[in-house]
């Protein structure tokens, strides 16, 4: 496949069947390999759309400085695109993220400001909002509240899924900014109204939930509960176990958020099989495992791996 530039190649990712993890020939699992995007994650789609939209709106002008709260993948995608388009980038990233994320961001010359590990991404969002107020000339695309984030998936991920899998019955993705689920979900509501839209939400260690009070909780502005059919919480142990099964049984080397999504997808598959229903369940492989090797959670016992991820933002 030929493209005029790297950014033109964002999306168009393969959808691969999982013959060994699918419970039967009537209940099939399909993995959309978003790690095949230029910076190795699904975030390339949303970030490119947000940058394009901001340029179109005149919010982003040559030489501008971008600011973004991110636990990693959004920042990495933004760092690459900013470099190509001539913008500077300041990322606010929680301290409890893998070393590779810092290395990648620095490679593309992003400036990183670390936020406290306690409170996880909530704290990064809070710090970024303070910085945005102090630096009115900086442009915060703000993935949690930017309609172009979800729109990217409505325009690309959704249509790709239906083109490759017209018989799709379920779509399962991770819940972070909620952009993937909102965009694909809206597209499916229009084109496959019977499809179930299922969210897998990572359940981190306690540190990440260490808010001072419940009013510090956070729900992304773009989140619309009515788009989802169900929402599951998946802990690190199940996420690690499934990530390892994906490697062992299907040869797919993915990050731990994908393990969490696969866990929810397998639950749905089992339920469909028990009910004697047929199902084509598509789920998102958000990124490859490369950025998480330093956590050590790909080796050793599940107990050790779970311990290694405790307190980390692993999704």
């Amino acid at each position: 496949m030929r493209f005029n530039s790297l950014l033109d190649s964002v999306g168009h990712t393969p959808l691969v069947g999982l013959p060994n993890l699918s419970p039967s020939s009537d209940v099939r699992l399909w993995a959309k390999l978003e790690d095949r995007n230029p910076t190795g994650s699904i975030k390339d789609r949303a970030v490119l759309a947000m940058v394009d939209q901001a340029e179109k709106d005149g919010r982003l002008t040559p030489g501008a400085t971008l600011l973004e709260p991110t636990s990693g993948n959004t920042g990495i995608a933004l760092a690459m695109i900013a470099k190509l388009r001539g913008y500077k980038l300041v990322c606010v990233m929680p301290k409890n993220t893998s070393a590779e994320r810092t290395q990648l961001l620095e490679m593309w010359e992003a400036r990183i400001m670390y936020s406290d590990a306690v409170g996880g991404s909530n704290e990064a969002v809070r710090v970024a909002k303070v910085l945005a107020a102090e630096n009115p000339d900086w442009v915060m695309l703000y993935q949690y509240g930017n309609a172009a984030n979800a729109q990217a998936h409505y325009d690309t991920t959704g249509p790709e899924l239906i083109a490759d899998l017209p018989t799709l019955t379920h779509f399962v993705a991770g819940l972070g900014t909620t952009g993937t689920l909102m965009g694909v979900g809206r597209y499916l509501r229009e084109h496959r109204p019977a499809a179930r839209i299922v969210a897998a939400e990572p359940r981190y260690g306690e540190l990440v939930y260490g808010l001072r009070n419940l009013d510090e909780g956070f729900v992304p502005e773009i989140y619309d509960e009515s788009i989802l059919s169900s929402r599951f919480s998946v802990g690190a142990r199940d996420a690690i176990r499934r990530t390892r099964e994906l490697i062992e049984l299907e040869g797919i080397f993915a990050g731990f958020s994908t393990g969490a999504i696969l866990h929810a997808a397998l639950g749905i598959a089992e339920k469909a099989k028990r009910a004697g229903e047929s199902a084509d369940i598509a789920f998102i492989v958000c990124d490859g495992g490369w950025k998480y090797l330093s956590t050590g959670a790909y080796e050793g016992s599940l107990d050790d791996a779970e311990m290694a991820l405790d307190g980390q933002l692993w999704a």
């Binding site: 709260p69 991110t70 991404s121 909530n122 993935q143 991770g174 808010l211 956070f218 992304p220 919480s233």
Partner: peptide, 10 residues
């Protein structure tokens, strides 16, 4: 039953 505060991802 698990109770959790809503947190951000991404």
């Amino acid at each position: 039953i698990t109770i959790l505060p809503a947190v951000a991802g991404g």
